[in-house]
Nucleic acid binder design. Sequence first.
DNA 1: GTGTAAACAAGAATCATTCACATCAAGGAG
DNA 2: CTCCTTGATGTGAATGATTCTTGTTTACAC
Lengths: 130, 130
Amino acid sequence: MERSAKHFRKRDAILACLRSTMEHPSAEWVYETVRGQIPDISLATVYRNLSLFKEQGLITSLGTVNGVERFDANTEPHVHFICTGCGSVLDLHGMEVPEALNSAAARESGGRVDSCQLSFAGMCGNCARN
Amino acid sequence: MERSAKHFRKRDAILACLRSTMEHPSAEWVYETVRGQIPDISLATVYRNLSLFKEQGLITSLGTVNGVERFDANTEPHVHFICTGCGSVLDLHGMEVPEALNSAAARESGGRVDSCQLSFAGMCGNCARN
DNA sequence: GTGTAAACAAGAATCATTCACATCAAGGAG
DNA sequence: CTCCTTGATGTGAATGATTCTTGTTTACAC
């Protein structure tokens, strides 16, 4: 049975927020941003829905940057650059993880490979200048 | 000036512990393990020295697995397999991150690349069977 | 209306990590 | 040897991100 849009107002707003940004945001960032439209949303709702989306495969986690988890609504495999200065995260385009690595990983681990993550860390242009 | 070995007894024990295991351990694991030899070591000392070693480049961090940070005394670039079931981490040998990606990352990010991490996530042989 | 189930808010609880501060050990100067 | 400085440490409190608990609200089915 279809549910009304209103029933999922907040859940949808959280997902829409993630999908409309290139920020690779934290839970806190999503909370602050969604609060602009829906002032009575709570942080627990953001956390609850983020982990739901993650289970459902609608978003992925980049892991933690400076102790806080960062999310990405772009579930296509792609490469990240993480600035250790300011914590910003960029997508790097035009780079593929060679497919051969994936099956080699499955073979070597003796198990099942679900995902793969390639990321570079360093200083972004801004932070490198300071 | 050289310092006596005794002055760094605990610091050295922490580093030795990291170097003698393939566990990719957490701070807690290091604490419990070193405590076998040095019962009066404290968890703060473990944390303190781990972040010191990290600054000095003697160890690297894998990032967090299930909310806890994991360390690796093998600073050679290599690939990891992380089991999302039991949290174990394996080294995958015979895989290189193509060098071309590194310079492409530096170019695209407009900054400086310090490190690179490639990891696969999935279920290890044991966990996949359950 | 009544019942049901999911979504939610608020705040408490948890847990990894860090901090503040007092203490201790080692080495050098006198 | 005694004083002094320096860095390493233990203890316990503090922090901060994340999760849990409980009671409330919402939308829908009957």
